[in-house]
Design a protein around this nucleic acid. Structure first.
Lengths: 128, 128
DNA sequence: TTGCGTTAGCGAAAGAATTCGCTAAAAAGA
DNA sequence: TCTTTTTAGCGAATTCTTTCGCTAACGCAA
């Protein structure tokens, strides 16, 4: 029977989106360079990935320029949010705090990080 | 050229792991019931998925009993941790605090959640 | 023991994601 | 202009995931 589409970007797609988020818009050349560094893949592969992502609506491109310039459709934040939501549901049974606790406990957050998080917590409490 | 294996469980695999994490060990029947509810898939499909997961080392099974009893190899925590690590790297450029901020800001954490998180933060600071 | 529903196992089909070779169009350089 | 390099596009091969049909083995009850 039919399979539902996975909605979230694949690993390789994320790799490409990351390049875009860090430096948008950009041409295939630049994207390829980083992909090649990371995995040693071919130029054609990069082009193909982009065309697939274009078809999927993950990226947009400006064809009036040469080389064509690509941009991510969704922001880093929105994508991350969606991935986190998925994990929250599929691993932590919907408990965001479990996820956050896990993320915190397994990391060496800096003093500034902690401070920043604390601020957010305060704001959240105030808003209630 | 060769493709590295994805290391993290697929969506369907996670769905199965979740059943196990919630109620271990258990036979195919129970797993199938939930999978079928969620996606309407066949019994054979469930069995096959499990055999693949067994081969991949995601689950373990006790064949001395009938029906065979399955268990997850990795805990919920360890799996979640690994997924979070991936997202931290692939989306937030390694910044755990960005991830946590994002997770918090897009959720309605309860008062208890907030309290719990605050405790963790304190502990983290003390440990320094 | 026989018969029936449950449980296991296979192999193969269908779907996706990723890879590349080969060709051509465009731009840059000599 | 002619040559070389960069950029685009396609179709096909590969690999991985998910699905199922078909068959067999098992355990329980009549």
């Amino acid at each position: 029977m039919p399979r539902p589409q996975s909605s979230s970007p694949t690993d390789t797609e994320l790799q490409i989106l990351r390049v875009l988020w860090n430096h948008q818009p950009c041409g295939v050349g630049e994207i390829h360079e980083q992909l090649h560094n990371a995995k040693g893949t071919n130029y054609s592969t990069t082009v193909k990935m982009l065309s697939v992502m274009l078809a999927k609506g993950l990226v947009r491109r400006d064809e009036t320029k040469r080389p064509h310039l690509y941009r991510a459709i969704w922001t880093r934040e929105r994508t991350g949010k969606s991935l986190l939501k998925t994990i929250t549901k599929k691993v932590y049974e919907g408990s965001v705090s479990s996820l956050v606790l896990q993320a915190l406990s397994s990391s060496k957050a800096s003093a500034e990080d902690i401070e920043q998080i604390r601020k957010i917590l305060e704001e959240m409490e105030k808003r209630k």
